[in-house]
Design a protein around this nucleic acid. Structure first.
Lengths: 201, 201
DNA sequence: TCCTTTGCAGGTCAGTTGTATGGCGAAGTG
DNA sequence: CACTTCGCCATACAACTGACCTGCAAAGGA
């Protein structure tokens, strides 16, 4: 067998370079040459690992979500409470999704870059449509257990509240990116919403 | 005086052509040649009315908001109630912002196209930052009068609820565009939120 | 009638894009 | 030692982009 390299590792490095550029200039502004330069490799090498730009975008998309999921998981397991209350988990996830720090800000920018592409791309749209219900169901499950624990009024529909919460955090994140709110204000608004959803009258 | 044409009219026609393309392919995918073709004119003529692509984008942005505002105003004056209740007005605005029909869908797509550009463009970001408080204050005013009329619990902060409502509608609109929810589902979620905000316990 | 201004068509240009191609060294196999 | 496979580079290419420029026709004023 001839020389061997870890393809996955190289591909991940390239994807990370793509994210850095996408968070700065958007996905459409990221040319293959730019990505190669950012990754510190030649255009030829990049092409060796991704036969087309589309293949690169798809690969990078599939892995940005994994990264975000992992960051959220870390955040939750880092909590002192064991196990954490549903409200705490929801708040932590929101905190990770809002552009409060550099990592999640980059993540959000990349997500938006893919979003704008998905609006005009059938394949990405299908990807979003298929991934969303799982997330919503995860939130709904948290809320169901909150209802069972008596932390949320039983007349609240967990499924509806889950969808509302997701959309709200998304919208707040967008405005925070534009600087319409500071990230801290956005977090305060999330807390206000949670206060109504839980405890609140 | 030599031949005279209505510059404003021509510019508006070009802007409309731009919106049609932007709603199909996004702003970055709209080349000057595409826009000219969509408007049924030559590239030369387009350049006669806009000295640069940027000038065209700025002009089109300034007018898309006017169009949306007018659509919302029409919708409200078309209501049978006189004067309409704050809740009704909020609901109508949300209905106009969600991609329920072709017009507002195009409007939303164009808005998003500008949004993604604003994320990486200082000038557009300033535009957004300066325009947002006025909208928020408008919503807050509606909610204040709703509190005075006893339709909203007095312990709700109109300013906070305004920001939440805006972000929520925005987020729901985004997901509706991706087909994660149908527009009707999104509207149902808005109603669920309003039900909690008004009347609800 | 000449002349100036306006409206617009067409071409050109330099730069960037994604993709395709030809080649060459290294590493292991027979 | 051939020989094959893999990793990678450099270049070329056709398509497209926004900006610029030259030229010409129409319309009125002098």
């Amino acid at each position: 067998m001839p020389k061997r390299v870890d393809h996955g590792e190289r591909r991940r490095r390239i994807a990370e370079a793509l994210w850095r550029i996408a968070s700065r200039q958007g996905l459409d502004g990221a040319s293959l040459r730019d990505v190669a330069a950012e990754a510190g490799i030649s255009l030829g090498q990049l092409q060796h690992y991704f036969s087309s730009k589309d293949a690169m975008l798809v690969f990078a998309l599939e892995h940005i979500n994994e990264m975000a999921t992992e960051r959220i998981r870390d955040r939750i397991t880092a909590l002192s409470d064991e196990p954490p209350a549903p409200r705490t988990i929801l708040r932590e996830i929101a905190a990770e999704m809002l552009p409060l720090n550099d990592e999640s800000r980059t993540g959000m920018l990349v997500q938006i870059a893919y979003f704008i592409r998905a609006v005009h791309d059938q394949q990405l749209q299908k990807h979003a449509r298929e991934g969303a219900p799982a997330l919503r169901e995860f939130y709904a499950g948290l809320l169901r257990s909150a209802v069972e624990r008596g932390e949320v009024a039983p007349d609240r529909d967990p499924d509806v509240e889950a969808a509302l919460f997701i959309a709200l955090v998304d919208g707040l994140g967008s405005y925070a990116l534009l600087g319409v709110h500071t990230p801290e204000e956005a977090m305060g608004l999330v807390d206000a919403h949670l206060e109504r959803l839980f405890g609140g009258r």
